[in-house]
């Protein structure tokens, strides 16, 4: 446990120290929230929901922020590899599983912090928190998204030599995961052919979970969302740990 904490601590310290990264990765979610939220608020009505579109996409944008931050945290292992720091960790008498878990929890923590910052911003533009329990539910789902996608990032980083493939992963994996989730649109009103894709996307359940926490309504039952997200977090951690075990420096 000490080892997991040590690795976690390093990740969080690095994150808190890189002010430009914190501010930089707030840019796109804020942009989405403001432009899409205010831009479409007056013309989009969500069937069966009281709130406007702005309230609808806030949980989606929070989830997006957590998604991007966590994938990025996981993929950072490539930097550790290139700057040589990974060797220092790998030659220590600790198991790779401990290292991987520490990295995952560290990445998830930074992702949750990032999501929380965004939530605070959202308070000023119309987010009305449904109470402390709802807030905690939302944070719980954010943590699960964080773990799932940090582990995913570590899995990818374990197989990648350098950052050249990063753009590819962003464009063909991460953006589709975000786009297909119910972050920007209600999944009930999708055309039939798109629905299965959306339901196959783990982020959908994360978004629905956060939305349930923040606004009290969701299109997927929160317990179902919880079960799927928890399963994804465990599966991705196992997959990430397996691939990380074989990492070569």
């Amino acid at each position: 446990m000490d080892i997991v904490y040590t690795i976690w601590l390093r990740n969080v310290k690095r994150y808190l120290r890189s002010k430009s990264r914190i501010v930089g990765s707030l840019g796109m979610p804020l942009f989405f929230m403001l432009v899409l939220g205010f831009g479409l608020n007056s013309i989009v009505r969500i069937p069966g929901m009281e709130e406007g579109y702005l309230e609808f996409i806030i949980p989606g944008i929070v989830a997006m922020s957590v998604l991007f931050t966590s994938v990025f945290s996981g993929i950072q292992i490539i930097w550790d590899k290139q700057f040589g720091f990974l060797k220092e960790t790998l030659v220590a008498p600790v198991s790779r599983l401990e290292i991987m878990i520490g990295q995952t929890l560290g990445g998830a923590t930074t992702a949750v912090i990032q999501g929380l910052i965004l939530m605070v911003f959202a308070l000023f533009i119309g987010l009305q928190p449904a109470g402390i329990t709802g807030f905690l539910v939302a944070v719980g789902f954010m943590a699960l998204i964080g773990v799932t996608f940090t582990a995913f990032g570590i899995a990818i980083a374990s197989r990648m030599e350098d950052m050249h493939g990063f753009q590819l992963i962003m464009n063909f994996v991460i953006f589709p995961i975000f786009g297909l989730s119910g972050a920007l649109f209600p999944i009930n009103s999708l055309p039939g052919w798109l629905r299965p894709l959306t339901l196959a996307d783990p982020l959908t359940y994360g978004v629905e979970g956060i939305r349930y926490g923040l606004s009290g309504t969701a299109q997927v039952h929160p317990l179902a969302s919880l079960a799927v997200m928890a399963a994804c977090a465990v599966l991705m951690t196992v997959a990430g740990a397996y691939l990380f075990r074989k990492i070569q420096t």
């Binding site: 080892i3 904490y5 040590t6 890189s18 700057f83 040589g84 720091f85 990974l86 220092e88 220590a92």
Partner: peptide, 30 residues
């Protein structure tokens, strides 16, 4: 691993941490 120390050919420090933190990280790992 417990009985050896190693200084790699390529640098293996975390540049975003202080010298003390790099040492502390190592001490905790061991």
């Amino acid at each position: 691993r417990k009985s050896i120390g190693i200084v790699f050919q390529d640098q293996s420090l975390d540049e975003e941490l202080t010298a003390y933190e790099n040492m502390d990280f190592h001490g905790r790992l061991y």
